[in-house]
Amino acid sequence: MNVPAHDGYHFNVMRRAIDLIDDADPKLSLNELAEKMNMSPAHFQRVFTQWVGVSPKRYQQYLALGQAKDMLAERFTTLDTAHELGLSGTGRLYDLFLRWEAMSPGEFARKGEGLTVYWGWFDSPFGLSLVMGTQKGICGIGFANETTEEATMGDLMSRWPKAAFVEDPMMLRPWVLNAFGAGDQAEEKTPLYMIGAPFQIKVWEALLQIPSGHVTTYSEIAEAIGHPKAVRAVGTAVGRNPVSFLIPCHRALRKSGGLGGYHWGLPVKRAILAWESARVDA
């Protein structure tokens, strides 16, 4: 059951447009994009700009392959100053509208035994998303565009194999609305319930300090959590982050400026980075 987290029309336009832009080589003109979307150029530009904050032409520039290197050069965040940056201007976006708590190591060791996890499918700016949560908050977000719905479901369920899974999108809908639709206008913070090993939790907490529109490196995260030589382990923990987008593993890059990996597909990572950069600059 799909329950739109925001105006379904805008989500569907954005999802299709992002796919078209990401796959296009060479870049598509406004008229070409509008024609593929079965819309007039003026109407498409208005809807697109309303959601992303910039024009389709500008967004295509953010999706360029060199954008990651540019971000690393211009918007590199040391985690010592990230909190200050996150509190300034539009850089905060969604980040200040989250609150989180972590499952205890003992609870994690039980692999979800005794835990009820609710789930539902939702439209998002980055394609169809699977959202999972407990009574305490969102504990999982996965994207299905680059995989399949079955693979995404199996992936998240395997994180907590002894939990009881119950389909209940309406229970999750207010949190998802904040996460994908109105996070920067929400009256209450979106709760996260971080279910992972202690080392993973440290890495995910570090990721939460990186403001929207900024990036850092795996080695910087390793330094920040007190394990400077554990870059490979940090990379693994980043990749195992179950709450994509809200715990922003997409903001971790290689020192070289390469995107690194992304559990739900590099096109999704590029789209999220471009979307955040565009909204910050706008």
Rank of each mutant, 00 (worst) to 15 (best):
T134F: 05
Q135L: 14
Q135T: 12
Q135P: 06
K136Q: 13
K136D: 09
G137K: 06
I138V: 14
C139T: 09
C139R: 02
G140T: 02
G140S: 08
G140P: 14
G142S: 13
G142H: 07
F143A: 15
F143Q: 15
F143I: 15
F143H: 15
F143W: 11
E146D: 09
T147F: 02
T148Q: 14
T148W: 03
E149Q: 15
M153C: 11
M153K: 15
D155P: 06
D155W: 09
L156N: 12
L156W: 03
S158M: 07
W160L: 05
P161K: 05
K162C: 00
A163N: 11
A164C: 12
A164S: 15
F165I: 04
V166W: 02
V166H: 08
D168T: 05
D168R: 10
M170S: 09
P174T: 04
P174L: 04
W175N: 12
W175D: 13
W175G: 11
W175H: 13
V176T: 10
V176G: 07
L177S: 12
F180K: 08
G181A: 14
G181E: 14
G183L: 06
D184Q: 11
Q185K: 10
Q185F: 15
E187Y: 09
E187G: 12
E188Q: 13
T190C: 10
T190Q: 04
T190L: 13
P191Q: 01
P191K: 00
L192D: 08
L192G: 11
I195W: 08
A197W: 03
P198D: 05
K202Y: 00
V203Y: 04
E205S: 07
A206Q: 06
L208D: 15
Q209L: 10
I210M: 03
P211K: 00
P211W: 01
P211Y: 01
S212H: 06
H214N: 07
H214W: 13
V215D: 09
V215E: 08
T216I: 07
Y218P: 12
S219N: 10
I221W: 01
A222G: 06
E223H: 12
E223A: 12
A224I: 02
I225T: 09
I225Y: 08
I225P: 05
H227C: 11
P228T: 11
K229E: 14
K229Q: 14
A230T: 05
V231C: 05
R232P: 02
R232A: 03
R232I: 02
G235Q: 09
A237V: 01
V238E: 06
R240W: 01
N241E: 14
V243C: 03
V243F: 02
F245D: 00
F245P: 01
F245L: 08
F245H: 04
